[in-house]
């Protein structure tokens, strides 16, 4: 997909390479084809909703993009490189794949500190992101005492440590209360307004519709739609209606 919001960046559009470029990406688990010949690209300054039914292959795609899983075929590039080839990945890409990737016995602040040490990021930045996600008061408490929403915010704080240009989030709104969802939506919008890029998977279509510029829908590992939100819903349908139509499984 190449639809772009009106450019918020000042970079020369001709020299701009896609932030994410996925080409013929495929992942097989034995007989199962989790991701099937997927091709798309994302440009800077966009917020993209990554949609699809359970088991469609969204998380698997993101894992390959982030170097956690090896593609069976094709490639997934961020800033023109494979993830592990990035010089300082934490300063370019921030990601949250699971909402509970914490040691329950470590405090939230220390979780961030450990990652900051590994990425050579200052402690002052740890304090900054704690402030940003409103966890300062709980930073010294062990994560086992955190609510689901607090964990979501701590994960987001970790992703933001390196002040990245690309944010990849897998179902970040799960467990957030309405205020949290509202906050997240505004946060993603303002994040992209500075020319940065967001790729976010979600099942909450109404929320997605309010936060993204464009959507990609996959089903059984294959891309079934990729378009600007206003193009998809231009016919007067809601995103949910379009989604249900596109992902409708053949009856029985």
């Amino acid at each position: 997909m190449s639809a772009t919001r009106p450019a918020a960046t000042t970079t020369d559009p001709l020299s701009r390479e896609p932030v994410v470029k996925v080409t013929s990406l495929t992942k097989r688990y034995g007989e199962l084809v989790a991701v099937d010949d997927l091709t798309f690209s994302l440009e800077a300054g966009t917020v993209t909703g990554f949609l699809g039914p359970n088991g469609a292959g969204k998380t698997t795609t993101l894992r390959m993009l982030l170097g956690l899983a090896e593609p069976t075929g094709g490639e997934a590039l961020v800033f023109g490189r494979r993830y592990h080839e990035l010089d300082e990945p934490a300063r370019r890409v921030g990601a949250v794949l699971e909402s509970n990737d914490f040691d329950p016995g470590r405090s939230g602040g220390d979780h961030l500190r450990a990652l900051a040490l590994a990425a050579e990021i200052q402690q002052s930045r740890v304090d900054e992101v704690l402030e940003l996600v409103e966890l300062v008061a709980s930073a010294r408490r062990r994560v086992k005492t955190y609510s689901l929403g607090m964990r979501q915010r701590l994960g987001l704080a970790a992703a933001l440590l390196g002040d990245p240009e690309l944010l990849v989030l897998d179902e970040p709104a799960n467990g957030l209360d309405p205020v949290g969802v509202h906050w997240l939506r505004n946060f993603l919008r303002s994040f992209a307004e500075g020319g940065r890029t967001v790729l976010v998977s979600s099942h909450l279509l109404a929320e997605v519709a309010q936060a993204v510029d464009q959507v990609m829908i996959i089903d059984r590992g294959r891309l079934v739609a990729a378009a600007r939100l206003d193009e998809l819903t231009g016919t007067g349908q809601t995103l949910e209606e379009v989604y249900l139509e596109l992902t409708a499984r053949r009856a029985s």
Binding site: L66, G67, L68, Y83, H84, L86, P89, A90, V93, A95, L97, E98, N100, D101, F102, D103, P104, H111, L115, A118, A119, A158, G162
Partner: peptide, 18 residues
């Protein structure tokens, strides 16, 4: 194994993919 069990291996490898 603690990192694998708790999932912190994901942020660990994201920050340092080597």
């Amino acid at each position: 194994t603690g990192e694998i069990r708790h999932g912190t291996i994901r942020p660990t490898f994201l920050v340092n993919p080597h």
